[in-house]
Design a protein around this nucleic acid. Sequence first.
DNA 1: ACCTGAACACCGTTCAAGT
DNA 2: ACCTGAACACCGTTCAAGT
Lengths: 224, 224
Amino acid sequence: MVFMTGPVPRNPRRTTALSRERIVEATIEILDTAGEGGLTVRALTARLSTGRGAIYHHVVNKDELLAAAADGIISRVLAEVDSDEDPKRAIRTLSLGIFQAIDEHPWVGTQLSREPWQPAVVRIWKGIGVPLQRLGVTGSARSDAGSALVNYILGSAAQHAAGPRRVPHGAARPEYLRALATKWTQEDPDPLVHETAALLREHDDRDQFLAGVDIFLAGITAHR
Amino acid sequence: MVFMTGPVPRNPRRTTALSRERIVEATIEILDTAGEGGLTVRALTARLSTGRGAIYHHVVNKDELLAAAADGIISRVLAEVDSDEDPKRAIRTLSLGIFQAIDEHPWVGTQLSREPWQPAVVRIWKGIGVPLQRLGVTGSARSDAGSALVNYILGSAAQHAAGPRRVPHGAARPEYLRALATKWTQEDPDPLVHETAALLREHDDRDQFLAGVDIFLAGITAHR
DNA sequence: ACCTGAACACCGTTCAAGT
DNA sequence: ACCTGAACACCGTTCAAGT
């Protein structure tokens, strides 16, 4: 005979105590595997084997959670950039690092466009500001140059995260781009659209992103 | 004595029939007055004096509604740009027009970053492509330049819509920027951060945006 | 102090029933 | 064909009750 004082709990109890770090870690795991739509307080508390209200003891709301998760990714990227490098090279390395991080974690691209003064974005401003200074750009010229670069990076990141990133580089990709190009040319007889559509078929997002960074660097130098 | 066959309907019946145009119009009105958070299917159908399911006869879902509303704003902006103008001037006019539209309708800034091939974004690509062509930029150089400019514009728009735009240019603004600058300098002893914070106090988002467009134009010319 | 999970006040979308 | 509004399957957040 079996004595039971209540229903068997569905989730085994945690072995480690809850903490902000553990919660953010689990948030990143869910975002990476299930995407932004998959991040719900219910999914998060299920994974952490805890009650729904528990996370509100460590974090004020879901927005703070997303900002903390994005900062977790971005701070790792920035930690890898060598600050002794040639300034232009440092800017290219930094930009590409952010681009690649967003390619791997598309939800970061969306998140960075949501709140300009969240920790991750301030980190990027600073990461761009240092090499610009070493490039000899000072005062309001540095503000302008920094703002231009940061907004370009964040804009490319968001567009890439929402679009081509979702299509793998494998078999499905050329098909997807061809369908898109066909749709454009059917809707619009303009030869400009036709030429753009043709280029779209063989373009690479990463290369195009880096070309944009170089246009910027050229403009900053010419501007002086 | 009064005969009633049922409860009095809470909303008076519409005088005009429902249509996609009327629905998009009402969507823009709600977004402008109540913001993105205020746009719910319930609020929309209440304003249109109809049942919740009615809009699904004209529109597939809420995403399509947001994309159509954004396209309504952007197409008006692009219609005003004079295509006979000097190409560089046309690019500045177009960029500023989009920036100002997003300053007035911040929800557009958020929406444009959500889906790269929505009608409003394709319209912007084309609007930038034409003057670039007239500037003598062709082939993959035009792809690169166009992508750089569009991503810069959309990135600036999203950041502006989410941030300083929310603070009016009146009395509250200097206070807000001073508080932000103070927060930065307290958290970080780096002199670079201090200098940036000082510049932040007196910076103007619109001017900084235009300075970025000029850096781009300089870079495109230098790049050639 | 920290955690639990039911309850609350919402969502977008569907669909049988009406006109 | 178009519309209605109840019903469905979710949300994020709160809070009394437990340990």
